[in-house]
């Protein structure tokens, strides 16, 4: 029987599936988290070992699939060849949430392999909403979109990111993947108040949260996912916790990745905090 979402606790803890943890999973090491998130692009072009591990893991755990190449805010049309592969992966894995980023990654079929911001104007809002509607219709399910960490913005922006995502969710029925680290990094870099972002967000759209760490580069904070959760992010979580219902929180750790239990410990810091509130 597959791992079911409805078995989740009130606070459900997840971690990202990374190759460094494959031996732990294959050797049936102890797993304490409730679910895993896998990067879709790592599994759509292979049916080899990584895919077998994902399938095996799916027997016992719910899986969220998170993409990095949807390119929803690009001037390019949707890539239906890519979407067909994604659809086929969804049919096999049956993820409980599917998501990507509110950004563009390439133009004219040329990829940056990075997550890039766009001008949050009324015109662009209309453009992205139409694209999301086509996407959700083709895929037959709703998507969640993650807020971005960005190192530039556009003068002509008419919405804050929070307002823009709220509006998209309202108009298209899509959801939000709220990345607390990205909000904090952007706020510090652009000298704004991170809590203002959370005051603007309509939490009813939030279906998943990401938490991670950043690197202080002196002149700016860089979203690196290279360590444990900093106290300032824990403070933010404490403040927004009353707005969250059954939060599904994922610890992202992508550089200098430690053993699976250590990554689990990070997300459990938030879980124990949640239980004390």
């Amino acid at each position: 029987m597959l791992g079911e979402v409805n078995k989740m606790n009130e606070f459900s803890a997840g971690i990202g599936l990374r190759t460094q943890h494959f031996p732990h999973i294959e050797n049936r090491g102890r797993i304490r988290v409730d679910w895993f998130e896998a990067i879709s692009e790592n599994f759509i072009d292979t049916r080899g070992r990584p895919f077998r591990i994902l399938e095996k893991l799916r027997q016992d755990f719910p899986i969220a699939l998170h993409g990095v190449s949807l390119n929803i805010a690009s001037s390019d049309n949707l890539d239906f060849q890519y979407l067909e592969k994604l659809k086929s992966l969804y049919q096999i894995i049956d993820p409980f949430v599917v998501s990507d980023h509110m950004c563009w990654t390439g133009f004219n079929a040329h990829q940056s392999h990075d997550l890039l911001p766009f001008p949050r104007t009324k015109e662009f809002l209309q453009y992205i909403c139409e694209k999301i509607e086509k996407l959700q219709e083709f895929m037959g399910r709703e998507f969640a979109f993650e807020n971005l960490s960005a190192y530039f913005d556009f003068e002509e922006a008419e919405f804050t990111e929070a307002q823009f995502i709220n509006e998209i969710c309202e108009r298209t029925g899509s959801k939000m993947l709220l990345d607390i680290n990205n909000v904090f990094v952007n706020a510090k870099n652009f000298s704004t108040d991170p809590m203002e972002y959370f005051r603007q967000i309509d939490f009813k759209h939030v279906v998943q949260l990401h938490i991670a760490s950043y690197s202080d580069k002196g002149q700016y904070l860089y979203d690196t996912h290279s360590g444990g959760i900093y106290p300032d992010l824990i403070e933010i979580f404490k403040k927004i916790a009353p707005n969250l219902k059954s939060p599904k929180v994922l610890m992202e750790w992508d550089q200098d990745i430690p053993g699976l239990p250590e990554v689990e410990n990070e997300v459990f810091k938030l879980k124990s905090l949640w239980e004390r509130l």
């Binding site: 190192y151 530039f152 913005d153 870099n189 000298s191």
Partner: peptide, 26 residues
Amino acid sequence: EGLVFPSKLKSPLASLEIYQKAYRAT
């Protein structure tokens, strides 16, 4: 043109260099 950059960075170029470096690192 028409971009806004993090206030502590010395120049607009420094901001886009973050992406240039990431592209090279990829």
